[in-house]
Amino acid sequence: MCELCTLLAGIIGTLVLGIFAIAFGLSVKGIDRKLSARMQWRIGPPLRQPFRDVRKLLLKQSVLPKNAVPWIYNSAPVISLAALISVLLFLPIGPVPALLGASGDIIVVLYLLIIPGIAMIVGGFSSGSPFASIGAQREMVLLISYELPLSMIVFTFAWMYSIVAPSLPALSFETFGTVPIWSVLGPAGFIGATIFLVVLLIVTTGEMAKVPFDIPEAETEIAEGIFAEYSGRNYALFYLADAVKMVVLPAIIIAIFFPYNLSPLLSEYFPNLPMSDWVAYGVDILFFMLKVLLIDIVAVTFMRTAFARMKIDQAVRLYWFHLFTAGIIAMLLVAADVMGVL
């Protein structure tokens, strides 16, 4: 293939992925709000409310505070959204292999995931409001705290693959797809991986800054913190970034823990079904969306409904002490399993 064709394919792929992620993310947000409302004994907004919110925000004026640094303040939301969409390029979406899988692996994803947080911190500091500064400080602390358990999980599995499948690239999502972790682990490793899954779900909640970890935003304490000064188009972009996050982070969990597709199973049990390649693709993408939704319901809807907001020191203690300990135990279990000690 010519270089131009690759470039064109990349651009079109990015556009399609971006639009898919935004539309799907906003729908997930709608479902999340509806379910959360039902859990709280309310009716809740209609499912298309997030779309309306974005439309309304885009119509509104974007106010620039007097003390703000304009170029940082205005670019933070764009960087945040762009970084999140680019994460998607390195992730397999159901049956579709990662668009840029060849040029980046898990390390790139981990780095790209930090960028939205940093953009929010910089944007918060640059808006020149005391509430936003406090929010940015809190976001910084939170960012540092959840990174530790997250990288621990990823590197444990990378190490595991380097032992069990030395021929495959250990840090590629491709490997996770071809040899699912559950297939190589024994009982001890199974328990370890389950602990990792729970830890990763809690990290996801923190990464999405939802209650109990919505500390940088904390409406009643610091008036939406980082976003205190953001309005109009800028705030809409942050809103979209939040929606895309609701696809990206579950997609990572799916890539690591549940890289299964539905169509092979279907064609095995129902051999009479007319399964063309395109139908199989569609089924698998729908299955992927279902998995994303389920993970969002557990990690976002349930979490933000069933708990009170923590204080920043309590959140740090949870991530660094409790989750780190759980992670170490899980790591030892997986290691023992892979090395054949147990």
Binding site: Q40, R42, E219
Partner: peptide, 15 residues
């Protein structure tokens, strides 16, 4: 409950 971000208890008690 709302002040500590626990809106669920807020909605239950008000109901």
């Amino acid at each position: 409950a709302h002040e500590i971000g626990f809106d669920t208890v807020f909605h239950y008690t008000w109901a």
